[in-house]
Amino acid sequence: MPFRLFSETAKRWRAWLLARRPRGHPARIAAREVYILPTGAGVAAALALAAMWVASINYGLALGHALTYFLVAVGVVSLFQTQRSLVDLEIAARPAQPVFAGEPLVFLLSVRELRGRARFALRIRGDGLPPINCALSAWGETTLRLSTPTTHRGWLEMPPLVIETEWPFGFARAWTYVALPVRGLVYPKPAENPPPAPRLPGRETGVARGEEDFAGLSDHRPGEPLPRVAWKASARLEEGLLAKRFAGGESQILWLDWQALPSALDKETRLAWLARWALDAERARLAWGLVLPTIRLAPGSGPEHLAHTLSALALYD
């Protein structure tokens, strides 16, 4: 299959280019890392200019020569501008907040301009993702949300970025690859309707108390549910948000035990059930512990404990 051969070559070619990608984090794009090729529009314009040149010769038009050469000069110089549009941009990414499989993982990209030149019509896209358009003022900085679909639990590396532009005329496309060592954690997708968590012998389980005990305020972490935000208290701050913290539910302990699950279940289903139970326990303000074949988490509760539990489930193998 010639197509397969072609895509195979393209893949190898891209791997080679990626090996030459800007290294380090944040990544600064250097001139030698920017590639440029004419677009269809560029080829069409070149053909049109060639025809105009021939017409100028044939009809002896001095001004025709002037017009053609002017457009040629502007076109050629515009290629340098296209390439320089990408040089000396700095790109950093923030590790994504964990999500459940199936939800998009969002990487926050910050793009800075380091040369004192305004940049226009930039496009940034992750490999296979829809492009994001942006522009930067001189010395400017902008933040973009790179949203990556997820399917499986575990670590998800940020896909390599393609940064491209056709500015100013669309006659050529300049692009570069940037791969940043940033990843996000994908929790297993919680099961929809598992049976209720089994009660383990010798352990005390209970129901959450109806009332939540307000335990204080702390910094809001991105990804925390919005109802937790203490809006009134946050408004008094100059920046950032505060979140409410609650105490309670510590007295009852639920053990989430891998071994206690029906032996017919496969690994992913077990993890999905455990994730669902952990979420339910947190919602019910219960304390819970986790027992996996390789890991044992002491009982606890609260968002941090939930995160630990879900991470352990996400990374279990």
Partner: peptide, 12 residues
């Protein structure tokens, strides 16, 4: 591109 041709043609 058509406009470019027209601009040029005026010079004839």
């Amino acid at each position: 591109l058509l406009s470019w041709f027209l601009i040029l043609a005026r010079f004839i």
